[in-house]
Amino acid sequence: MLNMNLIVIPILLLLAATAVTVARIRNLWAAVMFTGIYSFLGASWMLILDAPDVAFTEAAVGAGISTILMLATLSLTPKKRHRDGHLQSDDFEEKPLKHSPFWPLLVVTITGCALVYGTYDMPAFGDPNAPIQVYPDPSFVAKSQPDMHGLPNVVTAVLASYRGYDTLGETAVIFTAGIAVLLILRKNTPEDDRRANEQEAVS
């Protein structure tokens, strides 16, 4: 009936358990670490779903860079200042909820039920006649061979050549985000300050 890879069962269970743990845990430091684990598990599932490029990126970005950035943010945003500069684990406790989690849970449950109801019309997992597999005409995979002079990785071919505009725009988005972070966070170097003072003195 299904030639399903059995390893997905523990991966999916762990994925769900990790997500719930992130929701329940109040220590932000631990929550960030669990987010990293969640990303790795997600990447494992993507690998099983035949998307090695995405799995690769998710593992490097989600579990690597994003965890580092969140830890860096945490170290800059403790609850209170300490004279000696050492941080303790309770500096990163989230404040306990004042209200009961009933309303958010209700909203989430209703939304989830509506979405599950929606899946009854979805094509079954791996169905070769699903709309996504029929349109756009998947013969572009075969066409990419002569088009790209035999580049085997279709994902790269689509990313860099067929959808080159899209990737250009996206590189511009990364560029913009990088510049924006610099504008928000960077402190002037003493040299810059000195130069600014000189200019003020001149004018």
Binding site: T57, A60, V61, L151, N153, V155, A160
Partner: peptide, 18 residues
């Protein structure tokens, strides 16, 4: 090697930065 196997500029950039 991103054209021939899994990989590409995004992944390489992130790994290099890592």
């Amino acid at each position: 090697h991103g054209d021939f196997g899994p990989g590409g500029g995004f992944q390489a950039g992130v790994i290099f930065a890592a």
